[in-house]
Protein backbone atom coordinates (compact mmCIF):
# COMPACT_ATOMS: atom_id res chain seq x y z
CA UNK A 1 0.00 0.00 0.00
CA UNK A 2 2.76 2.35 0.99
CA UNK A 3 4.68 1.84 -2.23
CA UNK A 4 1.48 2.44 -4.12
CA UNK A 5 0.76 5.71 -2.33
CA UNK A 6 4.34 6.87 -2.90
CA UNK A 7 3.98 6.28 -6.62
CA UNK A 8 0.76 8.29 -6.77
CA UNK A 9 2.43 11.17 -4.96
CA UNK A 10 5.34 11.08 -7.39
CA UNK A 11 2.96 10.95 -10.34
CA UNK A 12 1.07 13.98 -9.02
CA UNK A 13 4.34 15.84 -8.54
CA UNK A 14 5.46 15.07 -12.10
CA UNK A 15 2.10 16.04 -13.58
CA UNK A 16 2.04 19.20 -11.46
CA UNK A 17 5.58 20.22 -12.38
CA UNK A 18 4.97 19.70 -16.07
CA UNK A 19 2.06 22.11 -15.76
CA UNK A 20 3.56 24.60 -13.30
CA UNK A 21 6.84 25.21 -15.11
CA UNK A 22 5.31 26.38 -18.41
CA UNK A 23 2.67 28.31 -16.44
CA UNK A 24 5.48 30.16 -14.69
CA UNK A 25 7.11 30.66 -18.10
CA UNK A 26 3.87 32.12 -19.40
CA UNK A 27 3.81 34.68 -16.58
CA UNK A 28 7.45 35.58 -17.06
CA UNK A 29 7.12 35.65 -20.83
CA UNK A 30 9.49 32.79 -21.67
CA UNK A 31 7.87 31.16 -24.71
CA UNK A 32 10.92 28.98 -25.31
CA UNK A 33 10.33 27.16 -22.02
CA UNK A 34 6.66 26.66 -22.84
CA UNK A 35 7.58 25.04 -26.14
CA UNK A 36 10.15 22.88 -24.36
CA UNK A 37 7.45 21.62 -22.00
CA UNK A 38 5.22 20.96 -25.02
CA UNK A 39 8.00 18.90 -26.58
CA UNK A 40 8.38 16.90 -23.37
CA UNK A 41 4.63 16.25 -23.28
CA UNK A 42 4.52 15.06 -26.90
CA UNK A 43 7.59 12.83 -26.55
CA UNK A 44 6.01 11.44 -23.39
CA UNK A 45 2.85 10.57 -25.35
CA UNK A 46 4.97 8.74 -27.93
CA UNK A 47 6.67 6.86 -25.10
CA UNK A 48 3.34 6.05 -23.43
CA UNK A 49 2.49 4.32 -26.69
CA UNK A 50 5.75 2.35 -26.69
CA UNK A 51 5.25 1.60 -22.99
CA UNK A 52 2.16 -0.46 -23.86
CA UNK A 53 4.21 -2.73 -26.12
CA UNK A 54 7.49 -2.67 -24.20
CA UNK A 55 6.42 -2.11 -20.61
CA UNK A 56 3.21 -4.12 -20.41
CA UNK A 57 3.83 -6.64 -23.18
CA UNK A 58 7.61 -7.03 -23.07
CA UNK A 59 7.76 -6.47 -26.83
CA UNK A 60 11.04 -4.62 -27.39
CA UNK A 61 10.15 -2.74 -30.56
CA UNK A 62 13.20 -1.00 -31.98
CA UNK A 63 11.06 0.47 -34.74
CA UNK A 64 8.50 2.73 -33.13
CA UNK A 65 9.92 5.68 -35.05
CA UNK A 66 7.97 4.19 -37.95
CA UNK A 67 4.63 5.02 -36.31
CA UNK A 68 5.92 8.32 -34.97
CA UNK A 69 7.10 9.36 -38.43
CA UNK A 70 4.01 8.05 -40.14
CA UNK A 71 1.81 10.16 -37.86
CA UNK A 72 4.03 13.12 -38.66
CA UNK A 73 3.71 12.58 -42.40
CA UNK A 74 -0.08 12.26 -42.13
CA UNK A 75 -0.15 15.72 -40.52
CA UNK A 76 2.35 17.14 -43.01
CA UNK A 77 0.65 15.75 -46.10
CA UNK A 78 -2.84 16.78 -44.96
CA UNK A 79 -1.66 20.32 -44.26
CA UNK A 80 0.32 20.44 -47.52
CA UNK A 81 -2.79 19.64 -49.54
CA UNK A 82 -4.95 21.99 -47.51
CA UNK A 83 -2.45 24.78 -48.18
CA UNK A 84 -2.32 24.12 -51.92
CA UNK A 85 -6.03 23.31 -52.20
CA UNK A 86 -5.32 19.98 -53.89
CA UNK A 87 -6.96 16.63 -53.06
CA UNK A 88 -5.11 13.67 -51.61
CA UNK A 89 -6.43 10.18 -52.44
CA UNK A 90 -9.62 11.85 -53.62
CA UNK A 91 -10.14 13.70 -50.32
CA UNK A 92 -9.50 17.35 -49.58
CA UNK A 93 -6.53 18.20 -47.38
CA UNK A 94 -7.15 19.56 -43.91
CA UNK A 95 -5.39 21.70 -41.36
CA UNK A 96 -7.62 20.61 -38.48
CA UNK A 97 -5.74 18.69 -35.82
CA UNK A 98 -8.61 16.46 -34.72
CA UNK A 99 -9.31 14.74 -38.06
CA UNK A 100 -5.57 14.62 -38.75
CA UNK A 101 -4.98 12.83 -35.46
CA UNK A 102 -7.76 10.36 -36.19
CA UNK A 103 -6.25 9.53 -39.60
CA UNK A 104 -2.74 9.33 -38.12
CA UNK A 105 -3.96 6.81 -35.54
CA UNK A 106 -5.78 4.69 -38.10
CA UNK A 107 -2.82 4.66 -40.49
CA UNK A 108 -0.18 3.91 -37.86
CA UNK A 109 -2.42 1.34 -36.19
CA UNK A 110 -2.92 -0.43 -39.51
CA UNK A 111 0.80 -0.52 -40.17
CA UNK A 112 1.48 -1.71 -36.61
CA UNK A 113 -1.01 -4.50 -37.30
CA UNK A 114 0.90 -5.59 -40.39
CA UNK A 115 4.34 -5.31 -38.76
CA UNK A 116 3.07 -7.01 -35.61
CA UNK A 117 1.46 -9.88 -37.49
CA UNK A 118 4.72 -10.52 -39.33
CA UNK A 119 7.14 -10.03 -36.43
CA UNK A 120 5.32 -11.37 -33.36
CA UNK A 121 6.01 -14.94 -34.44
CA UNK A 122 9.57 -14.26 -33.38
CA UNK A 123 10.95 -13.09 -30.06
CA UNK A 124 14.09 -11.76 -28.43
CA UNK A 125 16.77 -10.35 -30.69
CA UNK A 126 14.91 -11.42 -33.85
CA UNK A 127 11.90 -9.36 -32.88
CA UNK A 128 14.13 -6.34 -32.22
CA UNK A 129 15.81 -6.74 -35.61
CA UNK A 130 12.59 -7.24 -37.58
CA UNK A 131 10.91 -4.18 -36.07
CA UNK A 132 14.07 -2.20 -36.82
CA UNK A 133 14.10 -3.47 -40.40
CA UNK A 134 10.51 -2.36 -41.01
CA UNK A 135 11.25 1.09 -39.62
CA UNK A 136 14.34 1.38 -41.83
CA UNK A 137 12.18 0.51 -44.85
CA UNK A 138 9.88 3.37 -43.92
CA UNK A 139 12.84 5.68 -43.41
CA UNK A 140 14.32 4.99 -46.84
CA UNK A 141 10.91 5.18 -48.44
CA UNK A 142 10.31 8.73 -47.16
CA UNK A 143 13.86 9.64 -48.09
CA UNK A 144 13.32 8.68 -51.71
CA UNK A 145 9.78 9.96 -52.14
CA UNK A 146 10.16 13.34 -53.89
CA UNK A 147 6.45 14.25 -53.90
CA UNK A 148 6.65 15.20 -50.22
CA UNK A 149 10.10 16.69 -50.00
CA UNK A 150 12.27 13.57 -49.97
CA UNK A 151 15.29 14.08 -47.76
CA UNK A 152 14.55 17.80 -47.39
CA UNK A 153 11.34 17.07 -45.51
CA UNK A 154 8.02 18.83 -45.74
CA UNK A 155 7.25 22.14 -44.07
CA UNK A 156 3.81 23.01 -42.70
CA UNK A 157 3.44 26.71 -43.47
CA UNK A 158 0.56 27.51 -41.14
CA UNK A 159 0.15 25.75 -37.83
CA UNK A 160 -2.74 23.27 -37.84
CA UNK A 161 -5.90 24.35 -36.05
CA UNK A 162 -7.69 23.20 -32.94
CA UNK A 163 -11.29 24.25 -32.24
CA UNK A 164 -11.57 27.02 -29.65
CA UNK A 165 -7.83 27.62 -29.26
CA UNK A 166 -5.27 29.78 -30.98
CA UNK A 167 -2.57 27.25 -31.84
CA UNK A 168 -0.15 30.00 -32.85
CA UNK A 169 0.22 30.81 -29.14
CA UNK A 170 2.73 28.55 -27.34
CA UNK A 171 0.55 28.28 -24.23
CA UNK A 172 -2.46 27.05 -26.22
CA UNK A 173 -0.27 24.51 -27.96
CA UNK A 174 1.02 23.38 -24.59
CA UNK A 175 -2.51 22.94 -23.23
CA UNK A 176 -3.36 20.70 -26.18
CA UNK A 177 -0.30 18.52 -25.68
CA UNK A 178 -0.76 18.37 -21.92
CA UNK A 179 -4.42 17.42 -22.28
CA UNK A 180 -3.65 14.63 -24.74
CA UNK A 181 -0.84 13.42 -22.50
CA UNK A 182 -3.24 13.11 -19.55
CA UNK A 183 -5.72 11.27 -21.76
CA UNK A 184 -3.08 8.85 -23.01
CA UNK A 185 -1.90 8.21 -19.44
CA UNK A 186 -5.50 7.53 -18.46
CA UNK A 187 -5.80 5.08 -21.33
CA UNK A 188 -2.59 3.34 -20.28
CA UNK A 189 -3.76 3.03 -16.67
CA UNK A 190 -7.13 1.75 -17.82
CA UNK A 191 -5.64 -0.89 -20.13
CA UNK A 192 -3.19 -2.01 -17.47
CA UNK A 193 -5.91 -2.53 -14.88
CA UNK A 194 -8.33 -4.25 -17.24
CA UNK A 195 -8.51 -7.93 -18.12
CA UNK A 196 -6.59 -7.16 -21.27
CA UNK A 197 -3.69 -5.72 -19.28
CA UNK A 198 -3.71 -8.68 -16.88
CA UNK A 199 -3.41 -11.01 -19.87
CA UNK A 200 -0.74 -8.90 -21.60
CA UNK A 201 1.47 -8.62 -18.49
CA UNK A 202 1.05 -12.32 -17.76
CA UNK A 203 2.18 -13.16 -21.29
CA UNK A 204 5.25 -10.98 -20.82
CA UNK A 205 6.23 -12.94 -17.72
CA UNK A 206 5.29 -16.43 -18.80
CA UNK A 207 3.80 -17.00 -22.27
CA UNK A 208 3.75 -20.79 -21.82
CA UNK A 209 1.63 -20.49 -18.71
CA UNK A 210 -0.74 -18.05 -20.42
CA UNK A 211 -1.21 -20.49 -23.30
CA UNK A 212 -1.68 -23.40 -20.91
CA UNK A 213 -4.65 -21.66 -19.31
CA UNK A 214 -6.13 -20.81 -22.69
CA UNK A 215 -4.93 -17.26 -23.37
CA UNK A 216 -3.43 -17.18 -26.84
CA UNK A 217 -0.28 -15.02 -26.60
CA UNK A 218 -0.22 -13.99 -30.25
CA UNK A 219 -3.63 -12.34 -30.37
CA UNK A 220 -3.22 -10.40 -27.12
CA UNK A 221 0.26 -9.22 -28.09
CA UNK A 222 -0.90 -8.16 -31.52
CA UNK A 223 -3.72 -6.02 -30.12
CA UNK A 224 -1.27 -4.49 -27.63
CA UNK A 225 1.17 -3.73 -30.43
CA UNK A 226 -1.53 -2.06 -32.53
CA UNK A 227 -2.72 0.13 -29.65
CA UNK A 228 0.90 0.99 -28.97
CA UNK A 229 1.53 2.04 -32.59
CA UNK A 230 -1.63 4.15 -32.64
CA UNK A 231 -0.63 6.23 -29.61
CA UNK A 232 2.90 6.74 -30.91
CA UNK A 233 1.44 7.71 -34.30
CA UNK A 234 -0.78 10.29 -32.63
CA UNK A 235 2.28 11.76 -30.92
CA UNK A 236 4.05 11.94 -34.28
CA UNK A 237 1.20 13.98 -35.76
CA UNK A 238 1.31 16.29 -32.75
CA UNK A 239 5.06 16.72 -33.04
CA UNK A 240 4.56 17.79 -36.66
CA UNK A 241 1.83 20.17 -35.48
CA UNK A 242 4.31 21.66 -33.02
CA UNK A 243 7.43 21.92 -35.15
CA UNK A 244 5.52 22.61 -38.39
CA UNK A 245 7.92 20.34 -40.18
CA UNK A 246 8.24 16.65 -40.99
CA UNK A 247 11.26 14.87 -42.36
CA UNK A 248 12.66 11.34 -42.67
CA UNK A 249 14.57 12.02 -39.42
CA UNK A 250 11.34 11.28 -37.57
CA UNK A 251 11.58 7.69 -38.85
CA UNK A 252 15.29 7.28 -38.20
CA UNK A 253 16.47 4.45 -35.95
CA UNK A 254 17.85 7.01 -33.52
CA UNK A 255 14.27 8.14 -32.89
CA UNK A 256 13.26 4.56 -32.06
CA UNK A 257 16.23 4.40 -29.71
CA UNK A 258 15.29 7.69 -28.09
CA UNK A 259 11.82 6.37 -27.24
CA UNK A 260 13.34 3.27 -25.65
CA UNK A 261 15.81 5.43 -23.73
CA UNK A 262 12.95 7.57 -22.41
CA UNK A 263 11.17 4.50 -21.05
CA UNK A 264 14.29 3.00 -19.50
CA UNK A 265 15.21 6.32 -17.84
CA UNK A 266 11.70 6.84 -16.50
CA UNK A 267 10.83 3.27 -15.56
CA UNK A 268 9.71 0.42 -17.81
CA UNK A 269 6.00 -0.31 -17.48
CA UNK A 270 5.45 2.48 -14.95
CA UNK A 271 2.55 4.82 -15.61
CA UNK A 272 4.58 8.04 -15.36
CA UNK A 273 7.84 6.51 -16.58
CA UNK A 274 7.46 8.16 -20.01
CA UNK A 275 6.86 11.57 -18.43
CA UNK A 276 9.91 11.32 -16.16
CA UNK A 277 12.03 9.91 -18.98
CA UNK A 278 11.03 12.53 -21.54
CA UNK A 279 11.73 15.30 -19.04
CA UNK A 280 15.18 13.87 -18.28
CA UNK A 281 16.04 13.43 -21.96
CA UNK A 282 14.94 16.90 -23.06
CA UNK A 283 16.47 18.45 -19.93
CA UNK A 284 19.78 16.77 -20.68
CA UNK A 285 19.68 17.89 -24.28
CA UNK A 286 19.01 21.51 -23.31
CA UNK A 287 21.33 21.93 -20.32
CA UNK A 288 24.26 19.75 -21.31
CA UNK A 289 23.75 20.33 -25.03
CA UNK A 290 24.56 23.99 -24.32
CA UNK A 291 27.76 23.08 -22.46
CA UNK A 292 29.18 20.37 -24.66
CA UNK A 293 28.38 18.87 -28.00
CA UNK A 294 29.09 15.46 -26.49
CA UNK A 295 25.98 15.54 -24.27
CA UNK A 296 24.83 12.24 -25.69
CA UNK A 297 27.94 10.61 -24.27
CA UNK A 298 26.96 11.76 -20.79
CA UNK A 299 23.40 10.64 -21.39
CA UNK A 300 24.81 7.25 -22.31
CA UNK A 301 26.60 7.08 -18.96
CA UNK A 302 23.39 7.93 -17.13
CA UNK A 303 21.59 5.25 -19.09
CA UNK A 304 24.25 2.72 -18.18
CA UNK A 305 23.93 3.65 -14.51
CA UNK A 306 20.16 3.23 -14.68
CA UNK A 307 20.41 -0.16 -16.35
CA UNK A 308 23.03 -1.35 -13.84
CA UNK A 309 21.81 0.18 -10.60
CA UNK A 310 18.24 1.40 -10.96
CA UNK A 311 16.36 -1.07 -13.12
CA UNK A 312 13.05 0.63 -12.38
CA UNK A 313 14.23 3.96 -13.80
CA UNK A 314 13.50 7.20 -11.95
CA UNK A 315 10.02 6.10 -10.87
CA UNK A 316 11.38 2.80 -9.58
CA UNK A 317 14.27 4.52 -7.81
CA UNK A 318 11.90 6.73 -5.85
CA UNK A 319 8.95 4.42 -5.21
CA UNK A 320 10.38 0.89 -5.37
CA UNK A 321 9.24 -2.12 -7.30
CA UNK A 322 6.02 -2.06 -9.31
CA UNK A 323 3.12 -3.85 -7.69
CA UNK A 324 0.82 -5.93 -9.81
CA UNK A 325 -2.49 -7.70 -9.30
Amino acid sequence: MDRLRKEWVLNAVLAGALFAVPLWALMSDEPFIITLATRIAILAIAAVGLNIALGLGGMVSFGHALYFGLGGYVAGIAAHHAFHGTPVLGLPGTNQMLPIWAIAMVVSGTLAGIVGALSLRTSGIFFIMITLAFAQMGFFFTLSWPAYGGEDGLPIFMRNQFPGLNTARPWDMFLIAYGVLLLSLGLFAMLRAARFGAALMAIRQNPDRAAAIGISPFGIRLVGFILSGMITGLAGAMMADLTRFVSPAMLAWTMSGELIVIIILGGVGRLFGPVAGAAILVGFEVFFGGLTEHWQFWLGLVLLAVVLFARGGLVGLITGRARNV
Binding site: A194, R195, F196, I213, I215, I220, V325
Partner: peptide
Protein backbone atom coordinates in the same frame (compact mmCIF):
# COMPACT_ATOMS: atom_id res chain seq x y z
CA UNK B 1 -3.99 -12.81 -9.34
CA UNK B 2 -2.88 -16.12 -10.82
CA UNK B 3 -6.22 -17.74 -10.08
CA UNK B 4 -8.19 -14.74 -11.32
CA UNK B 5 -6.26 -14.86 -14.58
CA UNK B 6 -7.18 -18.52 -15.00
CA UNK B 7 -10.84 -17.73 -14.30
CA UNK B 8 -10.75 -14.90 -16.81
CA UNK B 9 -9.19 -17.24 -19.37
CA UNK B 10 -11.85 -19.84 -18.62
CA UNK B 11 -14.57 -17.30 -19.34
CA UNK B 12 -12.76 -16.42 -22.57
CA UNK B 13 -12.94 -12.71 -21.80
CA UNK B 14 -9.43 -11.35 -22.11
CA UNK B 15 -10.29 -8.67 -24.67
CA UNK B 16 -11.89 -6.35 -22.13
CA UNK B 17 -10.21 -3.00 -22.07
CA UNK B 18 -12.11 -0.82 -19.63
CA UNK B 19 -13.28 -2.32 -16.36
CA UNK B 20 -10.51 -3.00 -13.78
CA UNK B 21 -10.19 -6.74 -13.05
CA UNK B 22 -9.40 -6.20 -9.41
Amino acid sequence: GNVMLALQARQGHSYRFVWPVM
